[in-house]
């Protein structure tokens, strides 16, 4: 679990070497202003500079859209045989920011809760994570520090920090050591100290701030259950689901069956779903348990700050990446919403 110091060029060479063996995803520029975790190609340049959080978080690679749950085949005996999907290939998620790293460890816990999700598990144990430290807030949307995600290192195999003198490469696991065998970086005895010094230069406050400490949120949200804030934000919400689909800790899915035209074979898949879409909580009747958009906003927010934190005991499920607010066309920002409720409930400072 050593530390190394390398030039960006050396790290880039090493990453390209790894990318030859398996899919390696690194944030790449897409469109005019956005980034996406895409497979690193031979000729692709690696951007070490500050990149914004990608459109969808890297954790979605572990829970892909339209994932096969099984294929079914009717045999000569007229019985249906259910076949599991092909195991997925090993991959490397590289350039993962602490917020997204925390998102992945949250997903790990949810998916490992009994009964564990076998397909997520299979992908996860075959995934190596190379994380990238943040020394400055990525933009005016982020609030990772406020929800305790900035210092996340758990779950990473290798941890990179951009120092003035080069890239600090820290191995955090046996798998990290394994993939670093291929690198020829010089050892750095005081890696941790150098990282702490660099982290000491972070601006304060780091990004936006919560009006209350995260630990106080569940109680505050219980008090503010009937808060008009949800409905006020809801007035301009499109219920389009973007906020959920870009969230590092959203994992809800819809299940769909398709069969071949001849009716003999079929496939069941799961696709990304969103609790902001009206049909999400609909049941036969028909009855909708969250028919009002404000009720859905409340559910989304309480899942991040109350329901899941209390269920899994992991602290805030919001990792402060700011994606939901950044990508909301209606400019609905979850931090603003929480802070408005804090003011209203009187829990605000």
């Amino acid at each position: 679990m050593g530390s190394y110091l390398a030039t960006e060029e050396q790290v880039s060479t090493w990453l390209h070497l790894l990318a030859k063996e398996r899919d390696l995803f690194w944030p790449r520029s897409v469109g005019q202003f956005n980034y996406s975790f895409l497979p690193l190609g031979e000729r692709d340049e690696i951007c070490f500079d500050r990149y914004l959080p990608t459109i969808v978080p890297p954790g979605r690679r572990l829970l892909p859209d339209d994932e096969t749950l099984f294929t079914s085949q009717q045999g000569d005996d007229r019985l249906s045989h259910y076949l599991p999907p092909q195991p997925s290939a090993p991959m490397v998620l590289a350039g993962v920011r602490p917020c997204d790293l925390k998102g992945i460890t949250q997903l790990d816990t949810v998916m490992a809760a009994a009964p564990a999700d076998p397909y997520y598990h299979q992908r996860r144990v075959n995934t190596v994570i190379i994380a990238m430290n943040c020394l400055a807030p990525c933009d005016s949307r982020c609030f990772c520090s406020a929800v305790g995600a900035l210092g996340a290192q758990d779950g990473a195999d290798v941890f990179l920090t951009l120092l003035a003198e080069g890239v600090l490469v820290e191995s955090l696991s046996a798998r990290g050591d394994e993939i670093l065998v291929k690198a020829s970086f010089s050892l750095c005895e005081d890696g941790k100290e150098r990282r702490l010094v660099a982290e000491g230069t972070r601006p304060l406050p780091f990004g936006r701030e919560l009006a209350v400490v995260p630990e106080a949120l569940p109680e505050m949200l219980r008090k503010g259950y009937e808060s008009p804030v949800y409905h006020r934000y809801g007035e301009r919400c499109y219920s389009c689901g973007t906020c959920n689909l870009v969230c590092p800790t959203c994992y809800c899915f819809e299940v769909r069956d398709e069969m071949s035209l001849d009716g003999f074979s079929g496939r069941r898949s799961r696709t990304w779903d969103s609790c902001m879409i009206p049909a999400f909580a609909e049941v036969a009747g028909p009855h909708n348990f969250r028919a009002e958009v404000g009720e859905r906003q409340r559910h989304r927010l309480k899942r991040k700050f109350e329901y899941l934190p209390e269920r899994f005991g992991l602290g805030s499920f919001c990792v402060g990446c700011g994606r939901c607010g950044r990508q909301c066309t209606a400019n609905i920002d979850i931090l603003n919403m929480v802070n408005d409720i804090a003011v209203e409930v009187g829990g605000g400072s």
Binding site: V110, M111, A113, P115, D117, Y251, C252, F253, E254, V255, R270, D273, C275, F280, A281, E282, V283, A284
Partner: peptide, 11 residues
Amino acid sequence: RMRCGVGKCGH
């Protein structure tokens, strides 16, 4: 209405 039955799908 359940989709997965095992606490994963969220519905």
